[in-house]
């Protein structure tokens, strides 16, 4: 591989010291690379959970079957909400990259709000399933369904906490144009969670499920 050390002109801190704390060899930020490496790993996590769901989706024992219980119109709305939160997330980043701190803050909070709406929808979905007789222990299908969507929900919740933390540091004046990479990294996480939901929405909800 052919490589020169890329020292980014924009980042004076790196690579210009005689005893050689070289900046990053690839010119890529360590943090961003770490997040991408992590997301690569997360693919296998969600892949495992989704597979565990798929092989169990027709095993609903005596409980409700997925085809009977899913409320597609409702889930479509909450999926749409999460999808749009990706737009607001990227707008938040774009604002901060322009140095527009006010809009950045607004979009961050909007993203967190949309995420919370999604979580609220999930809580509603879970409770209505419970009312209809689908508990966590009802069947292999129910365990797998709640585990998969629950893990996704926890990921979204963690994302909301990160977004709120960003918003707080923005109010404290510490989130400025030069740390836009932090927003970008949180954004990567957020989009990833969204992308996982795109997959789940299609494969778990829209592809016809077994009925009893």
């Amino acid at each position: 591989m052919s490589e020169a050390i890329v020292t980014e002109a924009g980042e004076p801190a790196r690579g210009d010291h005689d005893h050689g704390d070289h900046g990053t060899l690839t010119g890529i930020s360590n943090n961003k690379l770490l997040m991408w490496v992590f997301l690569g790993s997360e693919c296998l996590l969600f892949g495992g959970l989704i597979s565990a769901y798929l092989i169990n989706r027709s095993r609903f024992h005596t409980g409700p079957a997925p085809g009977d219980i899913f409320d597609i119109p409702f889930t479509s709305v909450s999926s749409f909400v999460l999808l749009m939160s990706s737009l607001t997330m990227v707008l938040a980043l774009s604002a901060l990259q322009r140095g527009d701190i006010r809009n950045n803050r607004i979009w961050l909070l909007t993203t967190a709000l949309l995420g919370s709406l999604f979580i609220g929808g999930q809580v509603y979905e879970f409770t209505s399933f419970l009312r209809e007789g689908l508990g966590y222990t009802t069947s292999p299908f129910s365990s797998a369904f709640f585990t998969l969507t629950g893990f996704h929900g926890i990921h979204v919740s963690v994302g909301i906490v990160m977004l709120m933390s960003l918003a707080i540091s923005s109010y404290r004046g510490t989130l400025t144009q030069k740390n836009s990479e932090t927003v970008e990294i949180v954004g990567l996480y957020w989009h990833f969670v969204d992308v996982v939901w795109i997959f789940i929405f299609t494969v778990i909800y829209l592809v016809p499920s077994p009925t009893s």
Partner: peptide, 18 residues
């Protein structure tokens, strides 16, 4: 101004490193 402050997450093991 170490500017990258402001996000931790809940300590549920899995995504901590994120």
């Amino acid at each position: 101004g170490h500017g990258d402050e402001g996000h931790g997450d809940e300590g549920h093991g899995e995504t901590e490193e994120s």
